[in-house]
Write a protein that binds this DNA or RNA. Sequence first.
DNA 1: CGTGTTTGACCGGCGC
DNA 2: GCGCCGGTCAAACACG
Length: 531
Amino acid sequence: MPTPCVVGLEERSLESVVAHQMISQDHQAPDRQNIELESAKAEMGEVKEENERLKMMLDKIEKDYQSLQLCFFDIIKQEASKRCTKSAPSHEQIDQESELVSLCLGRSTPSHELKRDEKGCNNPCNSKTIKDLEWKYNHNIGWESTEQLASSDPSSKEPNKQIVEAGDTWLPSKTLKTMRNGDDEISQQTHVKRTRVSVRARCDTPTVNDGCHWRKYGQKISRGNPCPRAYYRCAVALECPVRKQVQRCAEDMSILIATYEGTHNHPLPMSATAMASATSAAASMLLSGSSISEPGLGSTTTTIAAPILNAFNLNLLDNSGAKRFYVPNSSLTTPLFPTVTLDLTAPPSPPHTLFNRSSSSFVSNPRFLSRSLSFSSSEPTIPTGWDSGYHGYTAVPYNKTHTGFLNPGKQSQHFYQSYLEKNDQASSQESITETLTKAIASDPTFRSAIASTISSMVGGGATHDNQGGVERLCQKPKWGEPVQAVYPDPSAQNGKACQTSYFNRFSLPLSVSKSTSASSPTIEDQMNRQV
DNA sequence: CGTGTTTGACCGGCGC
DNA sequence: GCGCCGGTCAAACACG
C-alpha cells in the first residue's frame, strides 16, 4: 500500500523549509543562515523519522487486517467443519444454516449457488466451498439480504426456475404468475422469506442518499400516512432486482424511512457498500433469529452485545431509550415480510449496557421476527479519522506536533480525542476487547457483520480522498460501465439527499456533495453537536 | 433528445 | 363476489 500522505508530508515539509530559507537569505547574516540550515536539516531528519514511523504503522495496520481476514476464514472453515459432523440434517436445518452462512458479505451470491455448494457435496468443508467463500468475500461489494436463501428446495428438478424465483432477479408479478404454475409452494416460501430492511433516519431531504443509484417508478399515498410513499428501483444495473421504498414517518415528519428489498446483482458504488453491509447484517440477524431469540420474553429479543455494536456504532435499542413508532399501518411492516429496522434516529444506549434488548413492541406480526437496530447518530464511537483512510490511526500523535497537513480537521481531532476520553472513562479497553472476542466467537452473524464492515472500510479507505470523491460525485455513471465512483442519489430532487450519519460512522470514503451538506443541515448539526 | 419523474390505470392479495 | 389497499406499469411530462 502506497503512502501518499507520508510522501506528501515530506514534500510539504521540504517546501516550507526551502521557503523559510529563501526568506532568511534576504535579511540575515551567513552565520544565521548556517544555523537555519542546520536546524532545517535537523527538522528534515525528524520528518524522515516520522515518515518511517508512519510507514511502519501502515504496515502494521495492513498486517492486522490480513490476520483478521485469515481469522475470519478460519472461523468459516470451522463452521463448515461443524456442519460436516452433523449427520443427515433436515431441510430446515440446512435452510437455517445457509441463512447464517450467507451473511452475504456482499454482492449477490445466488442462494442456489450456496446451497448447491452446501448440498452438492456431502463434505461442505471441501476446498471449493471455502474457496468460493473466500472469493466471494474478496469480491463482495454489495449486500444480499438472505431472503432468497431458504426459499427454494435445492432438490428441485427445475433449477432454472429456482434461479428465477429464489435468486436475484426481480420479476414482474405477471411474469412470476406465469412461472408459478405448478410450483406454488416454492414461490410462497420465497414470498414469506423475503426480508426487508428498513432504515430510519432523521432527514429533511426527500430521500436518503445511500450511495446507490435509484430510479423512481411510482408513488402512492398509503393508508394511515399522509405522506406519499415513493418507490424506487436500483438503476445501477438494468436488471437489478433491488427495490427501495421511501416514506416519511407519519408521527414525525422529520424521520425518513427507507425500506430495502432484494439483492443487488452487480457491483455497488463504494459509498453504497456500508449500507449494504449493514442491511445485510441486519437481515441476517433477523433471519438467524431462531438461534438467538429468547423464549418467554415476549415474541422476540436480541442478544447481541451492545459494545460490539458500539464498536461499529450499531446500538440496539434499549427499552428505555429510543422512540419507537413504526408506521403501524404501513406495508413497511407488512405481515408478509419480516422486517428489520435500522434506527438512525435514536439516542445512544448507555455505554455499559451489555445486552440491550429490542422489545417486541414494534413487531407488527408475530409470525415474523422484527428487530430494531439503532445506528445511533449522536455518539461517535469510531473516530472520523477513519474517513480519510488509514491516517486516522496516526492523526492524534501527528497532530500534536504538526498542524494542518494530515489533520483532516478540528472536528475529526475532537472526535478522536473524545473517543479516547470516552474509552478511558466509560469502560476499560480490556473489557471491550473481551466482550468483542466473546461475541465474535459466539455469533457467526456478527463475525460476518464485522468482516463486511472491515472490508468496506479497508476497501474504500485507500482509494478515495475527499476531493476526488467530490469530483467523482459529479460524474454520471454510464450503463454497462463498472461503477466505482461515489455519487449522490440523482433521484433526489434538486440533488438534495440525506447522507445519513451512519456513513460517517462507518468512515466510508464518504464524500458529501456540496448540495448535500448545504441542504441537509440536520446531519451536519448532529455532527457538530457531537463535538 | 435522452433521462428521470409524475401520475392515473391496472393488477393481485386479502378481508369481509 | 366485492371492495380496499399496496405495488407496478407506462404514457405523459419536465428538465438539462
